[in-house]
Write a protein that binds this DNA or RNA. Structure first.
Lengths: 204, 204, 204, 204
DNA sequence: CATGAATGAGGATTCATTCAT
DNA sequence: CATGAATGAATCCTCATTCAT
C-alpha cells in the first residue's frame, strides 16, 4: 500500500464520494452483512472492487467515512433547525428535524443504525454515541437551568430521546405504510410530557 | 442424518443447550457478524464445528433456537412480574422487570438485540418485533379504557417504550460503570409522565 | 476395528442383507453421489449410520457387496433362462431375460449401472465387466462353431450386446412411458441381424 | 462480483479454457465424484480453488461449460464428416467419425460419458441425450424413406447406435491395448447388418 | 449387537485485499 | 488512476468413520 500523503485531488474526492454514496445505498438495501465490496462496486457502477481498496485503506476505513458522511449531513440538517430559541423549543425542533430528515434520507438513517449495531468497531461507535448524547444532554441541562425542563438526569434523558428516535427510524424504515407525521406528533407530545417541569402526576 | 425423529435424549438436550449458551455468549461478545461456528465452538470448548452442524441443521436453525431460548427466559421473567394489577402498575412492573433482567442476563439481552438487527432473517425478526409491540399495545389499550393512561396511539406508544428499553439495554451493556438502578428509576418516571392521564402541560 | 473372522451369524446376515437392499434402493433413487450412509440408513429405517460401519468395513466394501448381490440375482435370473438350447436360441434368451429382469428389478439394474460408472473403484469394476463379456463371448464363439453366427470377433460382439443392454436399461429407467416390450423386440431383431450367418448385404 | 457483464477479455477466455481443460482431464482421470475444485486446481496448476470460483459462478456452471466445450468439438468433428451423401453413407460416416474422435480426444469422451451419468443435473442431461437421439433418428428416418434402411423404429435404433458408441468409448478408454480400428470395422459391419433393408434371415 | 454422539477431513463458495498492467 | 485477475483465509456444511455405553 503506497497511500497518499498530501491533499486529495478533485478526482480523488469525487470517487470517494461516489463510493461512499454507493456504500450507503447498498447497506440500507441489504444490510451491512451482505454489503460486500462487490455489491458496493455494483451499486456504484464500478468495474472492480480494486478501486474501492485503492481509495480506502480497508473496509473499516470506508465504513468510518460512510459514518462520518452520514453524521455530517444529519448533524448539519438537525443543527440548522434546532440551534436557536428556548431549550424546549430547540428540543422540539431537534426531534422534529430528526424525523423530517427521514424523508429524503431514509438510506442514510437506516445505514447509520445498521453500522451502529453491526459494524465490527465497538471503539469509535461508542465514542460517537457518547458524543451525540453529550451534546443533547448539554441542551437539556441548559433547559433545566432556564426552567424549561424538570429535574431529570440530563445524560439519561438524552439517551432516552436518542433511543426513541432510533426506534422511529427503524420502524419507519421497515414498515411500508408507516405514518411518520403522526408518529412525530405523538413523539413530540411524549417527550414534552416526559421533560416538562409540570408537577408529576401522583404515582399510581 | 437429515434430522432426528423422536424425542431428543438427555445428552442431546444438554449439548444443544451448551451450544446455545456458547452462541449467546459469543454473539454478545463479538457480535453476530463475527460469531462463526468456529468462534462458537471455541467458546463452547468443542473440538469441531462439525458438532454444531450435527446438532443443528443450519446456522439459521441454531440462531432460531438461540432467539427462542432468550425470549422464553426473558418473557417468562417479565410476565411473572407484570401479569397482574392495574394496567399502570403492570406497565411499571414491565419496565422494571425488563431492567432487572439485565442483571444476570446481560449477554442474553445484548444477543437478542444483535440478532434482531443483524440476523439475515428479516421475516421472523419483524414478526417477533410486531408481536412484542402488539402485546404491549394491548396492555396500553386496556389502561386507556380504565383511565390509567392518556389518549395516545397505543401502537406508537408501545413502540416508544420498547425503543427506550432497547436503548437502556445497549447502554448498560456497553458502558461499564452504568448505574442501571438509577436509570430504571428515571425511565419509570419518564414513562409514567409520558402516559399518565394528567392534563398535558401547556405547549411551549 | 475388530472385524469378524468366523462365520457370520444369522442376524448378521439379515442385517447385512437389509442394508444392502436399502443401499440399492437409495442409489437407484438418488444416484451414488447422493447415497450417503445417512440416506441409506434412513431408507433402511436404521437409527444410526454407525450400524452400517459396524457391518461393513468401509463404504467401498458395502458397495462391493451391493454389486455382488445384484449380479448374483441378475446372473441367476438370466442364466436360468439362457442356459440351454442352440447358441442362437440362448443368445435370444439372454437378451430377452436381460430385458425381462428390468420388470420387478428396476432398482437393481439402475444401481448396477450407476455403480459401474460412478463408483470410485476402477479395479474391480473393470474386472467384472471383462468377466461378463468373456462369458458372453464364449457363447458367441460356440455359436460360430455351430454355424449359428457369422464370423465376427466374439469379444467385440459381446461388448456390443452388453452395451445395447445397458442402453436399454438406462432408457427404460429414465423415460417413464417407455415401451420395454417393443424395445425388446426391436433389440432382438437387431441383434439377430447383426449376428446371423446370412450373406452380408452388398456394401452401400 | 456476481458475474461479468460485457465481453470477456482474452485473459479471461484463456483462463476459463485452461480451467475447463483441467476439469476435463481431472474428470477423465478420477471420475466426476472425485473431481473436486481442489483436484481441478491442482491439475491446472492454480494456486487456489478461489480462482475457479472467480471465473465460474458455481461448479454446475463449470460443468455446463465443460459439457458445452466437449459437445461443440465433438459435434463439429462428427458433423463435418457425416453431413453429406446418402443416409446409409452418412450413418457409416457418423459411426466412423465417432470412433475416430476417440484418438486425440480420449479424455473428452470419457468425461462426456461420466458427466452424462454422474452429474447431478438430470434435467439438462436427459434433454441432451434426447436431442442427440432425435437428430440421429431423423437421419434414420430419411434413410428409410430413401430405401437405405429397413423398417425399424428410428427412435429405438438411434438409441441402440448411441449405446454401441458409448460402449466403445468406455472400452477403448479403459482397456490399454484396445484395437480401436478393428472395433470400428466390426461396429460398422454390425450396424450395417442391423439396419440394411435386406430380407431378414429366417428366425432361428 | 445397536445406538447416537463425536470427530476431523474435505466439500464449494465468498470476500477483502494485492498487484501487474 | 483504473482495471481485473489473482490470492488465500474463512465461511457453513456434509460425510465416513470411530467409540463409549
Amino acid at each position: 500500500m503506497t497511500r497518499k500523503q498530501g491533499e486529495p485531488t478533485a478526482i480523488e474526492r469525487a470517487r470517494r464520494a461516489q463510493i461512499v454514496r454507493a456504500a450507503i445505498d447498498t447497506i440500507a438495501e441489504m444490510g451491512y452483512a451482505r454489503a460486500s465490496f462487490s455489491a458496493i462496486a455494483r451499486t456504484a457502477g464500478l468495474s472492480s472492487t480494486g478501486l474501492i481498496s485503492y481509495h480506502f485503506a480497508s473496509k473499516q476505513c470506508l465504513m468510518a467515512e460512510v459514518m462520518r458522511t452520514i453524521l455530517a449531513e444529519f448533524t448539519a440538517f438537525v443543527a440548522a433547525r434546532s440551534d436557536h430559541g428556548t431549550p424546549a423549543g430547540r428540543l422540539a425542533a431537534f426531534v422534529t428535524a430528526n424525523c423530517e430528515f427521514m424523508q429524503g434520507h431514509r438510506n442514510h438513517l437506516v445505514t447509520m443504525l445498521d453500522l451502529q449495531s453491526a459494524a465490527p468497531d465497538t471503539e469509535s461507535r461508542d465514542r460517537q454515541a457518547n458524543s451525540d448524547r453529550a451534546k443533547l444532554a448539554e441542551l437539556l441541562t441548559d433547559g433545566q437551568h432556564e426552567g424549561d425542563f424538570r429535574d431529570f438526569d440530563p445524560d439519561l434523558m438524552a439517551g432516552f430521546i436518542l433511543s426513541l428516535r432510533n426506534g422511529v427510524i427503524l420502524r419507519a424504515a421497515s414498515q411500508p405504510g408507516f405514518d411518520l407525521a403522526a408518529c412525530t406528533d405523538e413523539l413530540l407530545t411524549t417527550i414534552q410530557r416526559a421533560t416538562s417541569p409540570q408537577p408529576a402526576p401522583p404515582t399510581a
